[in-house]
């Protein structure tokens, strides 16, 4: 044993040395480093979870936005179709009014025409009567009371009118 140098005090010194090294490395090496590794692991896991959460939320809000857009488009379409309908109605009404007015105008014109015609006929009749009286005077050479003549002619005309009808 002496030849290879085993020596009790020296052995104890090396045991103490190893113990010192063990404690130093434990305090300044392994403990803080393992703690830091654990902390970093926790931090990374947390960050990843957070990222997942944010991604989820983004997807959700995107979906919501899409839904909103869809609703808005539908509403717009409804408004447009309503407006179209209203326009159609207004157009129809206008057309109806125009038609009514036109028919009124026509009616008025007809009444006027009728009146003109009646007046003309009346005039013609009077003139005709005068001519007839003049002719009759000439024919019978007798002057008749103008009023009697008139009455006579009217009677004839009435008759002729009746006949016409």
């Amino acid at each position: 044993m002496e030849n290879i140098g085993i020596n009790l005090p020296l052995l104890i010194a090396f045991l103490i040395n190893f113990g010192i090294l063990f404690v130093l490395l434990l305090v300044f090496g392994y403990k803080p480093i393992l703690k830091m590794l654990d902390q970093r692991q926790a931090k990374i896991r947390e960050s990843m979870e957070q990222a997942d959460h944010i991604r989820e939320q983004t997807a959700k809000s995107e979906e919501q936005m899409k839904a909103h857009l869809e609703a808005a488009r539908k509403e717009g379409q409804t408004i447009i179709s309503q407006a179209t309908q209203m326009g159609e109605k207004v157009k129809e009404e206008a057309r109806e009014d125009a038609r009514k007015e036109a028919s009124a105008v026509i009616e008025r014109a007809r009444v006027e025409i009728d009146r003109d015609r009646d007046k003309t006929i009346e005039g013609l009749r009077a003139e005709f009567a005068d001519i007839a009286i003049m002719a009759a005077e000439k024919v019978i050479n007798e002057s008749l009371d103008k009023q009697k003549h008139q009455k006579l002619i009217n009677e004839v005309l009435e008759e002729s009118k009746l006949f016409k009808k």
Partner: peptide
């Protein structure tokens, strides 16, 4: 002793101000 000093110095400075 030299080994202990070298290892201690390395780990002491490596873990003095630990950052994430």
């Amino acid at each position: 002793w030299l080994t202990i000093i070298v290892l201690f110095t390395f780990f002491f400075f490596a873990t003095r101000r630990m950052k994430l």
